[in-house]
Design a protein around this nucleic acid. Structure first.
Lengths: 221, 221
DNA sequence: GATACCGCTTTGGGATACCAAACTGGTATC
DNA sequence: GATACCAGTTTGGTATCCCAAAGCGGTATC
């Protein structure tokens, strides 16, 4: 793999994994020495990550995007629009066997599954559901929204019950898609996204003091 | 303005203005000499334009994105999802005075207005309408969709009647938003997008022989 | 003590040199 | 005539070097 893709991937993982905190400053020279690459691939990676919304410009330099509570609400509206459109397309397909693959993916998580895996599968559910629609743009939009939500969802304090509820809602959505009931699938998905947003914003809002104590920049709603 | 933004802007204009044809190969060295910049800003511009979908990788090199008829249909579905969501938000706002600015923008076009201006305003209508929603993500999505549609719409053979019909539909949509009738606005906008797509695809499909004769790569639906 | 000033350092933007892989065109071989 | 092969060229990927501007301290001045 090329250095460029390598730096991009590793840097993205460090940001999403909160090894580099939201709001932290980045210098091209630091990344250069950290990954043993020269500035050319580093700058390419930075440009890519900027379009993903994971980093931004801070005057002349680069900054890891802060956790933005107001943005979370806007993303919820955005993803509702594209995810509902995608699920309606999928429910109208003749061959909806793809939902079984997603159901199996959900069922692969059990009590022994590590938290990172639950986190990843929880996002992949929405991404793979969008992929079934066959529309590249809806898929890209959902993937983009999930990337931007990733850190916030990771920081969310989720109890066992909330996770179980989310998984139940996921299965309900799949069931509606399976039977081709587009309206039901859309309604369930909308409610799921709204609930997800509310719990997420509430959780981060309650804990924003703790987040700031960890050195994370948090922009209020 | 920095060289980087300069190269990016000029190259984008050349691509959107079809001065570089769809499917044409690009070399970093050619861009370098063409704009009098070195490879660093050239590469930055290429990376940015790649994320906009205007250029793509062709093995090791770069290629101007072809006109893709199948993609046009997918974009229509995508923009319907985000534009309808945006217009519903806007219709629910207390202050909807922004629609008057957009109406004035439409009315600024008359029989003497050059075709490029009609083209630009026709896209800006949708972008500005999305901006009124206040949702950055919906706005970005609409702007992105319009950028990707820009060349195809420019190549579309539009008669006077079709343009007048489009403008009338634009005004109808604004009227519905003005009165706060979200359902009507959504319905009108959906129909407008579907009709726009049908005419666009039909026009390009009919003329695809002529397009190929001009050296433009056209991917069939 | 506050502030204006100055020199050093850091940093991103740009330019250039080098390399390996891919491409090209011609040639030799069958 | 078709094909395999080889040298020369082109091209994107990478590493480095230079520069101007911004940031940072320390100091002198009031």
């Amino acid at each position: 793999m090329s250095q460029m893709q390598n730096v991009e991937r590793q840097l993205r993982e460090m940001i999403l994994g909160l090894e580099i905190g939201p709001g932290e400053r980045l210098t091209e020279r630091w990344i250069e020495s950290r990954f043993g690459a020269s500035r050319t691939p580093v700058r390419a990676a930075l440009l890519r990550l900027e379009t993903e919304g994971l980093i931004g410009r801070d005057g002349r330099g680069w900054t890891v995007a802060p956790i933005n509570l107001a943005e979370l609400g806007q993303i919820a509206v955005y993803r509702e629009a594209v995810e509902v459109a995608a699920v309606r397309l999928t429910a109208a397909l003749e061959d909806r066997s793809g939902v079984e693959v997603i159901a199996a993916m959900l069922d692969s998580c059990d009590a022994d599954t590590p938290r990172e895996e639950w986190h990843r599968v929880g996002m992949d559910f929405h991404i793979e559901l969008a992929r079934l629609s066959g529309n590249e743009f809806l898929l890209r939009a959902v993937r983009d929204a999930m990337t931007r939500l990733s850190r916030a969802r990771w920081l969310e304090v989720r109890d066992e019950a909330a996770l179980g509820r989310a998984w139940a809602e996921h299965h309900q959505i799949l069931a509606a898609v399976r039977t081709g009931d587009a309206d039901a699938a859309a309604r369930l998905l909308s409610a799921h996204i709204a609930g997800s947003r509310d719990r997420l914003v509430a959780s981060l809002h309650d804990d924003r003091r703790g987040l700031r104590a960890r050195g994370f920049a948090v922009v209020a709603a």
